Lab assay of single mutants.
Amino acid sequence: MEQGTVKWFNAEKGSGFIERENGDDVFVHFSAIQGDGFKSLDEGQAVTFDVEEGQRGPQAANVQKA
């Protein structure tokens, strides 16, 4: 798993970007967020995640709040 920080997340659209510790920013969709309840992330929040190849390039998967 990688570690990173939420660069921004739009709760209305359900997507945003995570700033990786090593590498380019990666797209995140709300469906990749693990946990119960409303799936959203806050700017500056620390997260851990896997990276998968999506239709438009790398994207975060199995996102967990650190």
Rank of each mutant, 00 (worst) to 15 (best):
S31N: 06
E43N: 12
Q64K: 12
G44Y: 05
E2N: 12
F38A: 06
G57V: 07
E52M: 13
G57K: 04
D25P: 08
G4V: 01
K7N: 01
I18H: 00
N10I: 05
F17W: 11
E43W: 14
G16Y: 04
A32M: 06
G54D: 07
I18F: 01
E43D: 09
G4H: 01
E53G: 07
F17E: 03
N10Y: 03
Q34V: 14
K7Q: 03
G57N: 06
K13H: 11
T5P: 00
S15C: 15
G14Y: 03
E52G: 08
E43R: 15
V47N: 01
N62E: 01
T5E: 04
K7P: 00
F9D: 00
A46G: 08
E19M: 15
Q64R: 14
I33W: 04
G44F: 05
V47I: 05
G23K: 08
G23S: 05
E53R: 09
V28G: 03
D25W: 14
V28D: 02
L41F: 04
Q3V: 13
V51S: 04
Q3M: 13
E53Y: 14
G37Q: 06
P58F: 10
V63M: 02
A60P: 02
N10Q: 05
D36M: 12
H29D: 04
G35S: 10
A32C: 06
P58M: 10
G23N: 07
N22L: 09
G14P: 00
Q59W: 11
M1V: 12
V26C: 04
K7V: 04
N10M: 04
G57T: 05
N62D: 02
P58Y: 09
E52P: 01
M1Q: 14
E2K: 09
Q3S: 13
W8S: 06
Q59M: 10
F17I: 09
D24G: 13
K7C: 08
H29P: 03
V63T: 00
A61P: 00
V51R: 04
G57M: 05
E2Q: 14
E2G: 07
E2L: 14
V28P: 00
P58Q: 09
G44W: 04
Q34M: 13
D36V: 12
G16L: 04
T5M: 09
G4L: 00
A11M: 10
Q64Y: 10
G4R: 01
N62C: 08
G57C: 06
E53K: 10
A60D: 03
S40K: 09
E12L: 14
F9I: 00
A60C: 03
Q59F: 13
E21H: 11
D50L: 13
T5A: 05
G4D: 00
G23Q: 08
D25T: 11
G35P: 02
T48L: 12
F17Q: 04
Q3Y: 15
E43Y: 13
G37H: 06
W8P: 01
A46W: 14
H29G: 04
Q64W: 11
E43V: 15
A66V: 15
I18E: 01
E52F: 14
G14Q: 03
F30M: 05
Q45W: 10
K65W: 09
N62L: 06
E21T: 12
E19P: 02
Q64S: 10
D42F: 15
S40N: 06
M1I: 11
G4K: 01
F27N: 00
K39F: 06
K13Y: 08
A32V: 06
Q3R: 15
R20W: 08
V6R: 01
D42L: 15
I33T: 04
E52C: 14
Q3G: 08
G57W: 08
E19S: 15
P58V: 09
S31I: 04
V6P: 03
K65E: 06
I33L: 07
I33G: 03
T48G: 03
N10C: 13
K39C: 08
Q3K: 15
G44A: 04
G14S: 04
F9E: 00
G16R: 00
K13C: 13
Q59R: 11
F49T: 00
K65D: 07
E21C: 14
A61G: 07
